[in-house]
């Protein structure tokens, strides 16, 4: 409780950010940033939907789905294009999902994940 209250206070003072680089990482609260921030940076809204399956951190992750946070942007773009075109090997679900996005959206999401630390 005590810690939590302290944190509420500290958080307000720092107005800590969920920076474009650190989506859901708990470290976000230590980053200094403006009091409030843009809620519509490109790629964010779509990018958040991936986090149901793709963990945002490799730390303690024991699953089998690739962690795309911090992955090279071009690599993500190439993969997504191959999924979308139906040319990727060993795919189970991303071919179905990739067809839901335009090339520009794929670019924006790739940039969003490439910048993310984990």
């Amino acid at each position: 409780m005590k810690n939590h209250e302290k944190w509420l206070h500290v958080a307000a003072v720092l107005a800590a950010a969920y920076a474009t680089t650190a989506c859901a990482s708990p470290e976000a609260k230590q980053t200094q940033a403006p009091a409030h921030r843009s809620v519509d940076a490109p790629g964010e809204v779509i990018g958040r939907t991936c986090a149901g399956c793709h963990a945002l951190s490799k730390k303690n992750y024991k699953g089998f789905v690739p962690v795309i946070a911090g992955m090279d942007k071009e690599k993500i773009v190439q993969k997504m294009r191959a999924f979308k075109a139906g040319t990727a090997k060993d795919v189970t679900i991303m071919d179905r999902i990739a067809k839901g996005y335009s090339d520009a959206e794929i670019d924006a999401v790739a940039a969003y994940y490439a910048k993310m630390k984990h």
Binding site: A51, C53, K62, V65
Partner: peptide
């Protein structure tokens, strides 16, 4: 192999979505 992978992804999904929701 496809069905095995989907079974692994199902269990991975549970780990990730719960961390994304409550973590």
């Amino acid at each position: 192999k496809f069905r095995r992978n989907e079974a692994l992804y199902a269990q991975s999904w549970w780990m990730t979505i719960t961390a994304d929701t409550w973590g």
